[in-house]
Computed example of a mutant assay.
Amino acid sequence: MAAERDTRERHPAGATATGRPRARLDQPRPLRRRLLPEWDPDAFGRLSERIARFLGTGRFIVWMTVVIIVWVVWNIAAPAALRFDEYPFIFLTLALSLQASYAAPLILLAQNRQDDRDRVNLEQDRKQNERSIADTEYLTREIAALRMGLGEVATRDWIRSELQDMIKELEERQNGHRAPAVFPADHPRGRDMDDR
């Protein structure tokens, strides 16, 4: 009893023999601290698409041209004490290369997202086309079956001609005062093989 109590003290409930607590599956895991900040890839992708869309407009080119002209004119015409980037315009070159180094990956990311959307749309279109083809084939088979079935159905012209034949036959019998035939075997022409 004392040994059992000693074991329980050394290994509390939920702990393994190695001394680490067991992971409980009925409870959520505790949040872990991360060194890097968390970010939402979709939000970043949407932001990159907005930036890439703006970079691809005439408005961006006009604003960038205006800023560069003002920058160059200011650093040439302003008094020497107010100039912040002298003639070789190294700071301007650095700013433009930094803008280009960020613009290229953002444009590529936006293109990748667009490619993913296009792939999903293409897959949906392919499935829709397959369903349309299957529906068309089904309807074609149904129409063919209806045509085959209509070949065996009595048409209005056929029924009209049969009724006219019967009227003529009845008129002939009434004129000849013969008793009407009850069974098809008594029919003067024999059995009618053209019924269908």
Rank of each mutant, 00 (worst) to 15 (best):
I68Q: 10
I69T: 15
W71Y: 14
V72P: 07
V72T: 09
V72K: 04
V73D: 05
V73K: 09
V73H: 05
W74N: 11
W74A: 15
W74P: 00
N75H: 04
I76G: 03
A77K: 14
A77S: 08
A78K: 00
A78C: 08
P79N: 09
P79M: 02
P79K: 07
A80P: 04
A80E: 09
A80R: 02
L82Q: 14
L82V: 13
D85G: 05
Y87G: 04
F91R: 11
F91M: 07
L92E: 04
L92N: 00
T93W: 04
A95R: 02
A95T: 03
L96F: 05
S97K: 06
L98Q: 10
L98G: 11
Q99V: 02
A100D: 03
A100P: 09
A100R: 07
A100H: 09
S101P: 07
Y102P: 08
Y102C: 11
Y102L: 13
A103Y: 07
A103D: 03
P105I: 09
I107L: 03
I107A: 01
I107P: 00
L109H: 07
L109N: 07
A110C: 11
Q111D: 12
Q111I: 13
Q111Y: 08
N112L: 11
R113Y: 03
Q114K: 14
Q114P: 02
Q114R: 15
Q114I: 05
D116L: 13
D116Y: 10
R117L: 08
R117I: 01
R117P: 04
R117F: 03
D118T: 06
D118G: 02
D118K: 01
R119K: 12
V120K: 06
V120T: 04
V120A: 06
L122N: 14
L122S: 15
L122E: 15
E123T: 02
E123R: 02
Q124L: 14
R126Q: 12
R126M: 08
R126V: 01
K127F: 00
K127W: 03
K127H: 02
Q128F: 10
Q128V: 11
Q128A: 15
N129Q: 14
N129L: 13
E130T: 00
R131L: 11
R131P: 03
S132W: 06
S132Q: 03
I133M: 01
A134R: 01
D135W: 05
D135L: 00
T136G: 09
E137R: 04
E137L: 06
E137S: 06
E137Q: 07
Y138T: 07
L139K: 13
L139E: 12
T140R: 04
T140V: 04
R141Q: 14
E142F: 09
I143N: 14
I143H: 13
I143L: 13
A145N: 03
A145S: 10
R147T: 12
L150Q: 05
L150T: 09
G151Q: 12
G151K: 05
E152H: 15
E152V: 12
V153C: 00
V153F: 01
A154M: 10
A154N: 06
R156I: 06
R156Y: 01
D157V: 01
D157S: 10
W158G: 00
W158E: 11
W158V: 01
I159Q: 07
I159M: 15
R160F: 15
R160S: 10
R160N: 12
R160V: 13
R160E: 14
S161A: 09
L163I: 02
L163Y: 04
